[in-house]
């Protein structure tokens, strides 16, 4: 078992997997995924109330029954102002200062608007929020986010929902090395457990994912697979991974190799 719990904003989390609550085929599959993942943090959103359809109340009652810490998001917001207003509304509804800050710049890539993100993070931090900014691997933006009050950064692995894994491992590794003390969570783009394990092996502190579990053929089973991969990746990181070599190096001792001198007889 790996050592050390993940600590964010003074809260210790036993699981390094943060799970989204969207796209599941049924409420039961969400419950099963949360249980099998061992997650202690589930993301959710605020959306326009459609009076009478009951969808919101059903979901809300269900999510409360899961007994997990809630991480509301500002998904879909396109300006800092929208994100700030949504965060304020979320704080009132969910009674938490935690907010996953998303300010989206582009419809095709859903990439973060880093300028708006920094603005939103600064204002929300000033207003007492504990922010989880969805960002890229851009080091300059990361420094601005930290200066603005963020104590956690969540760079993307790949565009949201693509399942393409770690598109820029070099940049992610650079970010990890540049901010050795900052909790870093790979958020978005993870498609399979090996992607999550690779990020954890790099030294990332946690993984936030949704689609890869919710859209799997068996979400609870996949949630369990991710939990194991994340734990394995973390343990591997803590165990110190060997450096790669260019040339082969025998693992079996050469001393005492039988028939070693036979051809010289």
């Amino acid at each position: 078992m790996p050592d050390g719990a993940l600590k964010v904003y003074g809260v210790e989390l036993g699981s390094r997997l943060l799970l989204g609550s969207a796209l599941y085929p049924s409420p039961d599959s969400l419950s099963g995924a949360v249980k099998n993942s061992g997650t202690e943090v589930v993301t959710l959103s605020l959306r326009r109330e459609t009076s009478g359809d009951g969808a919101a109340s059903t979901f809300w009652e269900h999510i409360k029954s899961l007994n997990v810490r809630l991480l509301p998001n500002t998904a879909g917001c396109r300006t800092a102002k929208e994100a700030i207003t949504t965060a304020l509304m979320a704080r009132e509804v969910f009674s938490t200062n935690w907010i996953k800050v998303e300010v989206i710049a582009n419809d095709d890539t859903l990439q973060p608007d880093l300028f708006g993100l920094v603005e939103a993070v600064r204002e929300l931090s000033d207003q007492g929020f504990q922010v989880f900014p969805y960002t890229t691997e851009d080091l300059g933006a990361a420094e601005r986010l930290l200066s603005a009050g963020a104590e956690v950064l969540m760079p993307w692995g790949a565009p949201i929902g693509t399942g393409r894994g770690l598109m820029n491992p070099y940049a992610l590794m650079t970010m990890r090395n540049y901010f050795p003390e900052v909790p870093l969570v790979v958020d978005a783009g993870i498609g399979k457990p090996s992607h999550a394990a690779a990020a954890m092996e790099m030294g990332y502190d946690a993984i936030l994912l949704n689609t890869a579990v919710a859209r799997a053929g068996n979400p609870p089973l996949m949630a369990g697979a991710f939990a194991k991969a994340i734990e394995a990746g973390r343990a591997a990181h803590e165990a110190l991974i060997i450096e790669e070599r260019d040339m082969a190096s025998p693992s079996t001792p050469q001393a005492g190799t039988p028939f070693f001198d036979l051809e010289n007889l």
């Binding site: 989204g20 609550s21 969207a22 796209l23 599941y24 993301t43 959710l44 959103s45 605020l46 959306r47 326009r48 109330e49 969808a55 919101a56 109340s57 979901f59 809300w60 999510i63 509301p72 998001n73 998904a75 949504t86 509304m89 509804v93 969910f94 949201i160 949704n210 689609t211």
Partner: peptide, 9 residues
């Protein structure tokens, strides 16, 4: 705008 809790990632 009148918003309520929904699923989110």
């Amino acid at each position: 705008e009148i918003l309520s809790p929904r699923q989110g990632g």
